[in-house]
């Protein structure tokens, strides 16, 4: 690993951290356009974060140190994940420290801390949110792992860079199992990031809210970190999707300044498209009842398993 690689690595992480709120702003903008509303500014999430950081933090009287620690851990996990996902280049120093399974583990770490923090103050909504968040988690995680298994069966590795390189090498054609697992992945992405069929990030309706319920007791900088982490999580998931299914534009091997010139615009175009797609899905679908979420995620699981079966069935 050269110094250049480390610089690229740092650049990738910083770019993810910086771009994540913009992606969120872009999704909101697209959604507003699709719904014939006047769109908020692309930079609104940034202004929000800035505002929150400047406020005085209010903690509940019985909040424990865990409550104050959790936002940092959640944020840290998401930043690390951004460093591990090969969104621009496949040969970055941090990438070797975790494969896709460890990445899933990292997301679970963030979720567990989020849920524990939500239970810490002991309000009705906090615990309810924690419970629902964990429920979505334990349903989505197997589906996500199955998606990863399919990808790893095709490319004989669970490491994201290896999968990306295998796809880039052009040895994989039109693969039905990849298509199915992509569908499964989109469903998981929607559920894990609290997007519309599963959760609505824009409301605090107590009957249905999941993610927002866990954040109710947070304010100011802690809330800002949590929201930033949520934006980063969306960014990360979209980038995992690219690594697994649409790796075009990612630089193979050592990435130089020239490589970055290709990789960054490619990533930007892909992100913009994915954001618009996400907004479209959210616009055309209706929020599910909480009790229907397991069925939603079961279908994601089914897609992933079907992908696996098809891979083995047609692979012989």
């Amino acid at each position: 690993m050269t110094l250049g690689d480390w610089i690229t690595q740092g650049l990738e992480v910083l770019m993810a951290v910086a771009a994540a709120p913009v992606l969120l702003g872009w999704v909101n903008q697209c959604r507003a356009w699709l719904q014939n509303r006047r769109a908020p500014s692309l930079w609104l999430p940034y202004r929000n974060l800035h505002k929150l950081f400047h406020k005085e933090a209010v903690l509940a009287e019985n909040a424990s140190p865990l409550f104050r620690l959790a936002p940092y851990v959640v944020f840290g996990a998401m930043v690390l994940a951004a460093g591990i996902i090969p969104s621009m280049g496949t040969r970055l120093p941090l990438v070797v420290s975790a494969d896709a399974i460890a990445l899933v583990g990292l997301f679970v770490t963030a979720r567990v801390f989020l849920a524990l923090a939500a239970m810490d103050v002991g309000t009705a909504f906090g615990t309810l949110g924690a419970r629902r968040e964990m429920m979505v988690g334990f349903l989505a995680e197997p589906a996500l792992l199955m998606v990863i298994f399919v990808a790893s069966m095709i490319s004989a590795s669970t490491a994201l860079p290896a999968i990306t390189e295998h796809l880039l090498s052009g040895r994989v054609g039109l693969s039905p199992s990849l298509a199915f697992s992509a569908v499964a992945f989109v469903l998981v992405l929607l559920a894990e990031n609290g997007r519309i069929p599963v959760d609505n990030p824009a409301t605090h309706l107590e009957l249905t809210m999941i993610h927002e319920a866990t954040l109710l007791e947070y304010s100011a900088r802690h809330l800002a970190l949590m929201e930033w982490a949520a934006a980063l999580k969306l960014f990360n998931y979209v980038c995992i999707g690219f690594a697994l299914f649409l790796p075009w534009g990612v630089a193979e091997g050592h990435i130089g300044p020239l490589g970055l010139l290709v990789a960054i615009p490619a990533l930007a175009v892909k992100l913009a498209t994915a954001g618009a797609g996400l907004a479209l899905i959210e616009t055309v679908s209706a929020k599910l009842r909480v009790l229907r979420i397991p069925e939603f995620l079961a279908s994601a699981f089914l897609f992933a398993v079907l992908a696996l079966l098809v891979q083995v069935l047609l692979g012989t």
Binding site: G173, P176, S177, L314
Partner: peptide, 22 residues
């Protein structure tokens, strides 16, 4: 990599299976 026609056929087969589940 398989020839394109074969790939499309595989895709159709997979879709048939998916439709059965649907």
């Amino acid at each position: 990599m398989l020839p394109w026609g074969q790939q499309l056929l595989d895709m159709c087969a997979a879709l048939l299976l998916l439709l059965s589940f649907a």
